[in-house]
Amino acid sequence: MSETISVWPSRLRALSPLVGAVAFVALWWWACALKLVDPVLLPTPGAVLGALWDGFVGGAMVHDFLVTVQRTLLSFAIALAIAVPCGIVLGSSKQLYGFVEFLIDFFRSTPASALFPLFLVLFGVGEKTKVAVAAFGAGLTILFNVAYGVMNARKTRQAAARVMGASRLRIMVDVTLLESLPQTFIGMRAGISFALIIVIVAEMFIGSVDGLGQRVLNAQMVFEMPTMYAAILAAGILGYGLNLVFLLIERRFVHWGGK
């Protein structure tokens, strides 16, 4: 009996994210029922879910969804391939990091949308610009977190490995990099979310004919509000799903984080 009772708290914790979602939908439905907002501007949850269902079952939104996923993953892969090695190098030398710290913080603090004209000049109107600007923004986030994780690896474990006769390369690979993985995964989760945000904004304003961002903009221009909200909901589900995937990977392979 006691074992059954002890299981319930864990089950309730697992279901706790649904409470916020249900409360949000209930508040949305309540606002629509009382017509607190013009029904043309705020359709009911049922209408939005219906538009989302029709978009995916009919295939109209599937293509845009997959295109956004492709652009996001490509830009994230480019950012990861460049930012992780650079972050390891910079984190290994505080003096070297000090030389470029201002540039990293400056561009990391600059809104990515403000860099659109620069990337348009460099890459022109097309796929390269969307991917490049998203990779740039995500890469800076990953770079900062990787460097920070390497710099703040526990000195006691490094010293213990050094006393045991491990080489500098062995200490870097078996101690420092493993110690930096929790912070690296934080950067990766933030980076994939940042890449998705930039891709969707770029799809709105940089000559796109497809993608969730373009679908949101087109639906808004012709006042197809259920479709617009459905595309926004699809983008939110995509972002949540990508973040959840990295969170599960982190819990599986970086279970020692914080220990």
Rank of each mutant, 00 (worst) to 15 (best):
F246W: 15
A147N: 04
L52Q: 02
R215K: 13
V19F: 13
G59A: 11
R168C: 05
T72E: 10
Q70H: 10
L18K: 02
P45N: 08
L143Q: 05
N145C: 02
C32L: 00
D210I: 11
L90Q: 03
S93I: 02
D174S: 15
L15T: 08
F119S: 04
L217W: 07
M188A: 15
L122G: 00
V209H: 09
M228S: 03
I206V: 15
S10I: 11
E250D: 13
T156N: 09
T44M: 05
G241H: 08
F99I: 14
F123N: 02
L36N: 04
L122Q: 09
A219H: 01
N145R: 05
I171C: 08
V22W: 00
F107I: 07
L36C: 05
Y97D: 09
R162K: 12
A81Q: 08
G91P: 07
Y148R: 11
K94E: 00
S167M: 10
E3Q: 07
S109A: 15
R162D: 12
A138T: 05
A231V: 03
V7P: 00
A134L: 06
S92P: 09
T176P: 02
M61S: 13
F107W: 12
F253E: 03
R71H: 12
Q70A: 15
A160Q: 14
K128T: 14
W30Y: 14
A47H: 09
L41R: 11
A230E: 05
E3C: 00
Y148A: 14
V254C: 09
M204K: 06
G187F: 05
F205T: 13
A132P: 10
I104H: 09
E203P: 13
P85E: 09
G149Q: 06
D210Q: 13
I192G: 03
L120E: 00
V254Y: 02
F102C: 05
P39C: 11
V40L: 15
R11A: 11
L66G: 05
R71F: 10
S2T: 13
G258R: 12
C32W: 06
L34I: 06
I171R: 07
A31E: 03
L27V: 13
I206S: 01
L12S: 09
G211S: 09
L169Q: 11
V100K: 08
F223M: 14
I237S: 10
A147R: 01
S75N: 07
V69N: 07
Y229A: 03
A166I: 04
R162H: 09
I206D: 00
A190C: 13
I5C: 02
T227A: 11
A202H: 02
G126C: 05
R162S: 14
G239N: 06
V199L: 05
G191P: 10
L242E: 04
L181G: 04
R108Q: 12
V175W: 00
G98S: 11
F246G: 03
A81M: 13
W256R: 06
F253Q: 03
K259L: 09
A114V: 12
A79R: 02
V84K: 00
L120R: 01
I192C: 07
F194P: 00
G149M: 11
A166S: 14
L115R: 09
V199R: 04
V67M: 12
S6H: 12
V121M: 14
L217G: 01
A147M: 09
A47W: 00
I104S: 06
D174F: 14
G211I: 04
D38I: 06
V69C: 15
A47K: 13
V62Y: 04
L143I: 10
